[in-house]
Design a binder for these strands. Structure first.
Lengths: 292, 292
DNA sequence: GATTTAATGTTGCTTTTTTACATTTTGCCT
DNA sequence: AGGCAAAATGTAAAAAAGCAACATTAAATC
């Protein structure tokens, strides 16, 4: 049961439950903060029911007891978001909420990955990238495939030979042609994407070095030589795109920057050439980052 | 006090507190899930202290009592579980410089776009998206094409008909088949990308509505009906990938979230289906964001 | 080493939750 | 409608959890 399911169930009970259940559900939904802290005696009084009814109600909602129920309500409050705003908000309030939700999600996603990323690992990965003859980046799913493409985008500028594969079949095929000079980046938020796990295994058999950017407890992490932790926090807002994308972008930036510094000034020559190559497209503003 | 402060305080007590406090803090930190549900008698036993010590400890942590303490722990767990609040790693100077450069770049990029983005415009854009029969997203170049793909990725989940084109030729072709029911998103950091400007002009000729996500002083901004400012600040760090990508992601998130809320609950059904469709791929963890 | 202060433990009391059982209500059948 | 079973709800007492007051021990200070 996901945390927010408890609110859904409350909604259902508020509509379909028996008399006492309806009243209770309404009271609770009308003030979750209160309900999560008040003793059941208070709650029972407010709803005009007896105390055991509250206990039973919690059980029928799928909780172990009142304590467990309150525990879940506390989590709902922490997660907040959509469920706590049953009525449409006035425009300004809503706007502020949207902006805040996105900004805070992004900021905390970055903060977290910043705290847990071990630069020794990143440095090691950068060295692997510099030494590799061919770099493959595998990623599937919305977030991870975006990351794979972005990784390719960042690394090719450094003069590295890199190819991103977001298709499962292509990943396996690419893995099959890996050798000792290959480096594989495997990106997956879950760490359970089958095609990626298998591709890593295959590539490794052929002597490739492998770096997973994934949940460190996952199968993928176990399969790869090195793991950079990439954890997507459960989302606080149903309608909001996951902030985990910012984390992934951050990790990619770390790798790209470290690798660039490792390669040194010759990188700059490559970047300069890219800029020149774009100048024919009316995009030659020299202050602009390379490649729009 | 933010929710996660409780973890920080526990850390401090684990290091600086008295003997009993240290033991208690360690026990709690070692298993927050357990600590948030166990009665204090259990906790006291494990830590080898007396029950009132636990109560006192909770108070000294700034909680009203044990219940309040457990309440806060539950919220910590909801937000991300222990592993999301690791102690920040200590890094040597060189490593810290890289991490800080990337983090500060990202944070300030988000901050800047947050400040300048007008939610009235975003709301208007969301309405256009909801009303549109077909949405086209055009973007060229590293950052903008990534943004285009990401925009497609975010919007198709909402049940919208959306197609991203990152190839100049394809953009023009797509623009040529636009009509009054079309909505075009044109993404370009420079606002000078010829194929995009022309595509917008063509699409508009055929009656499409057009939204530019670009530099507001650019030709592209002038060409489009609506402009969401997207400005890439010149980078101070040559080796660092531009932080402007975070800005773009932010704008996309704002649009996606606003549109989702505008569409309303029927969106959730779509997200649910996407999740179900992934469950065959061993990725059915319900707590995970939709689509890896 | 005595004395004060802070920290921790012991005991028993209060609050909160739960169990077991009694009562009421509801739905259904004749 | 009236009666009966089943479900829902209430009552009261027991169990569990948390807490306060005081006792004791450890530590710091002189």
């Amino acid at each position: 049961m996901t945390t927010t399911d408890i609110v859904n169930r409350l909604r259902i009970w508020a509509a379909d439950g028996s008399k006492a259940e309806r009243r209770l559900a309404e009271i609770i939904l009308s003030d979750i903060e209160y309900a999560s802290r008040a003793p059941i005696a208070d709650l029972a009084l407010r709803a005009g029911v007896s105390e055991p009814t509250v206990t039973r109600f919690c059980r029928s909602l799928g909780c172990e007891g009142v304590r467990d129920f309150k525990f879940k309500l506390a989590q709902v409050l922490a997660i907040g978001g959509l469920y706590l705003f049953p009525e449409p908000l006035v425009r300004d309030e809503r706007d502020a909420r949207v902006v805040d939700a996105v900004a805070e999600g992004a900021a905390s996603a970055i903060q977290r990955v910043r705290d847990i990323t071990d630069m020794d690992t990143v440095n090691a990965v950068a060295e692997m990238a510099v030494e590799a003859g061919q770099i493959c980046v595998f990623g599937s799913g919305g977030v991870s495939s975006l990351g794979a493409v972005e990784m390719q985008n960042r690394l090719f500028r450094l003069g590295l030979s890199v190819v991103a594969q977001t298709d499962g079949q292509m990943q396996r095929m690419q893995a099959a042609v890996c050798d000792k000079k290959s480096l594989v980046f495997a990106i997956s938020a879950s760490g359970q994407a089958t095609s990626i796990i298998e591709s890593v295994r295959v590539a490794r058999q052929y002597g490739a070095r492998t770096v997973a950017i994934t949940n460190p407890d996952s199968d993928l992490a176990k399969e790869a030589e090195v793991c950079l932790p990439f954890i997507i926090a459960p989302d606080t807002q149903l309608y909001k795109p996951t902030a985990g994308r910012y984390s992934l972008l951050f990790i990619i930036d770390l790798i790209a920057m470290t690798t660039a510094e490792l390669i040194g000034p010759s990188v700059l020559e490559g970047l300069r050439r890219i800029r020149i190559s774009l100048s024919g497209l009316n995009m030659s503003d020299p202050g602009r980052p390379v490649g729009d």
